[in-house]
Amino acid sequence: MFGAERTRNLLGPVDPARSVSVAPPPVSARELIDRAGGTEMVAGRRRVRPSRRLVLTAGTLAVAAGAVAVLQPFDGPAPDAPGGPGNSAGLVLVPVAYQFDADPPEAGPQLRALADKIKDAEYDHRGGRYMYHHTKLWGDPVMTSADGRHHVAFASESKLWQAADGTGNQIRTQLEPQYPDQESRDYWQRESIGRPAATGTPAPAVTPLSPEELRPLSADPSELRERLKVEYGAGAASKWVGTLYGQYVVPRATRAAVLRVLADVPGFRWRGQVTDRAGRNGVAVTFDDREHDQQSLLIFDPKTGELLAHELLTLSPVRISSYEVILDVAWTNQPG
């Protein structure tokens, strides 16, 4: 079991909050369990990033009976019906299909070629006070059965307006439960038998953002290498690319520089043409971290070089651990 101090020790210098006092989570473990059991709750007010895994530690107890839970660090469509895993069937997630599945080539040459040919994005010709991001995420947190085999999490949709001083608004909507495999879906549906159905879906949570100074973006390779933590390898770089694109409206010069920086990081493999979870055409690279049984996936727009999606998968067996899809990025003068 991980605690906060052990987690920080493991992260070391790559922990972005190592000098910050972290307040207790605004959404309790019990509230998360109640949501999964079909009880209507108000969505938590927090910024969303793949970070935690919820583990049931009292066996396969009925959620309504109050199962004990602990939070551990997590290394990953509109709702059809209200309720938790048993009251709304939810989706079984399928890994993205790669053009080059077996023996993929090194990604460096392809990433450099992509950097050389990318075009302007629509927002490159516009401006505004706020950076707008519309994203969909699954995997924060994941609820896991006591035996560690069966997993479920609620997808969430986030719309974020943030100014250079950190202020703005976030609107987060909880969506349907999703599962990494059919066995998990079947398990959570069995566990929900006899539980009361929810009376409605949680309302969107509107969160004002507190001031924080956002470091301006640069296309300087040395600065980008530091931002993306490439000294810690391709796994860390994948994570921080996702963070960069999830927070900033990245201009063309910086997009090209990011691709060139990643091209020099050992371990990335070229997966060729893919289709992301929003149905968009992209090109993909992956990094296999065999030590941690994990694969990082980055999907880029082949025309503009924008990041479309970032995913984490387990390798044995292959299944989704988390995903974030960046649906829209823009400049605007009005916060939502």
Rank of each mutant, 00 (worst) to 15 (best):
T199Y: 06
P177D: 00
G194F: 06
Q178W: 09
T199S: 13
W161K: 01
S184C: 01
T173M: 09
I193R: 13
T199I: 15
Y187K: 02
W188G: 06
D181G: 04
L160A: 08
T199A: 13
W188N: 08
E183F: 02
S184W: 00
A198H: 00
S184T: 08
P177R: 03
E157R: 14
P180Y: 07
T201K: 10
G168A: 05
R185W: 00
Q189L: 00
D186N: 13
Q189W: 00
L160G: 09
W188H: 01
R172D: 13
R172H: 09
T201H: 09
T201V: 12
I171L: 14
R185K: 11
E176K: 11
I193L: 12
G200F: 01
S158E: 13
R195Q: 13
L175C: 07
S158M: 10
G168I: 10
Q189R: 14
T173K: 13
P180K: 05
Y179C: 05
A197K: 11
I193W: 07
E176L: 11
T167F: 04
E176T: 14
S192A: 15
N169W: 13
S158P: 02
G168N: 08
I171C: 08
L175P: 02
D186Y: 00
A164R: 14
A197L: 05
I193H: 10
W161D: 10
G200V: 06
Q178L: 05
D181V: 06
G166R: 04
A163Q: 07
R185S: 11
R172K: 13
N169Q: 15
T173W: 05
L175M: 06
Q162M: 14
Y187G: 01
P177S: 08
A198T: 02
A163P: 10
Y179Q: 02
L175I: 04
Q178A: 14
A164F: 09
A163D: 12
Q162L: 06
Q170M: 14
